[in-house]
Amino acid sequence: MKRFVIALVVLIGLLVAADYGAAAIAESTVSRQMREQLDLADDPSVRINGFPFLTQALSGEYRSVEVTANRIRLGELQEVQVRAHLHGVQAPLGELLGSGPHTIQVRDAEGTLRIGPDDIEQYLPGVTKVRVENIDENALKDAVKDGGEPSLTAIDPEYAARLVGTVNVPLLGKRDVSVIAVLQLAGRQIQVVPRDIRIDDGTGERQPLPAAVQSRLQDLFALRVDPGTLPFDVTPTRLRARDGTLEISGTTSDLSFGAGATTAGK
């Protein structure tokens, strides 16, 4: 009995190892295919979810595949991160593990694109050391209590952010300026609309500025970015602040990768 148990454990281990090995080969194939078709600088990270892999592979359909690509160039943007969650991926096992041409079909996908502070800064002349911070309802209420417009409390914090940057303020010199801004999508364009501007008084407290200075800085922090056609042809539906970036998210469907295929979705 002891030998049987040991043999069974060894067999299970070999099956699991074979399953993970086959998954790794498939993931590498998908990664190379996407790099070539999307003209990426590096192979994207690909993870095929679900265990066992071979059960999905035999059917030729994978329920969930996650893709992450870094250092994507979109127009003037240089360091964009793209993440995609693909659903209903169809790829015959023979194509994935073989050396011939590969064709991959995707039923639908959720995509996100993250723009970091360095890329944002190039669109804000005169502003350095840019940071992007999340904001909540309490922060909006506190801004009103500290002299901000009452209309700030009507802002949905899910579609707002606090931008912080160093600016040469007239008569005061270089100071950290904090801006509560509304985040908007106009088609594929990103718009950041400043609503409340404060200056760090040197003690860590944010103080309101005179109307004339606020007006000048509003123009300085107003931001409009057109990243062009997004990877996977994702249609953007949401813009928010997340993890120190501006994140665009959206969906697409009916994707195709491979020889003679296009990535255009709908």
Results as ranks from 00 to 15, higher is better:
138 N>Y: 13
150 P>E: 07
83 R>Y: 09
91 A>Q: 06
133 E>M: 08
88 G>T: 06
122 Q>I: 09
147 G>K: 13
88 G>H: 08
93 L>S: 10
107 R>S: 07
128 T>P: 14
68 T>S: 12
109 A>D: 02
147 G>S: 13
78 Q>P: 07
75 G>W: 00
103 T>H: 06
129 K>W: 02
126 G>M: 11
76 E>L: 15
70 N>T: 06
68 T>V: 12
131 R>N: 11
126 G>P: 10
121 E>K: 02
108 D>M: 06
79 E>I: 08
126 G>W: 11
87 H>N: 14
138 N>G: 12
94 G>N: 11
141 K>P: 03
120 I>Y: 04
70 N>M: 08
79 E>S: 13
154 A>M: 12
76 E>T: 13
117 P>R: 12
78 Q>V: 09
94 G>H: 05
76 E>H: 13
138 N>W: 14
115 I>E: 02
83 R>V: 01
148 G>S: 09
76 E>Q: 15
94 G>I: 07
139 A>H: 01
154 A>T: 14
146 D>N: 15
69 A>N: 05
149 E>A: 15
145 K>I: 03
107 R>A: 09
113 L>I: 06
84 A>V: 00
138 N>Q: 15
85 H>S: 15
126 G>D: 08
71 R>L: 15
88 G>R: 00
132 V>R: 00
144 V>L: 14
112 T>K: 05
74 L>D: 00
79 E>H: 12
137 E>I: 10
94 G>T: 04
105 Q>E: 06
151 S>A: 15
112 T>A: 11
73 R>V: 09
116 G>S: 10
101 P>R: 05
110 E>W: 01
133 E>Q: 12
94 G>P: 05
119 D>T: 01
137 E>V: 09
98 G>K: 08
127 V>K: 02
120 I>H: 07
78 Q>L: 15
151 S>P: 14
149 E>Y: 00
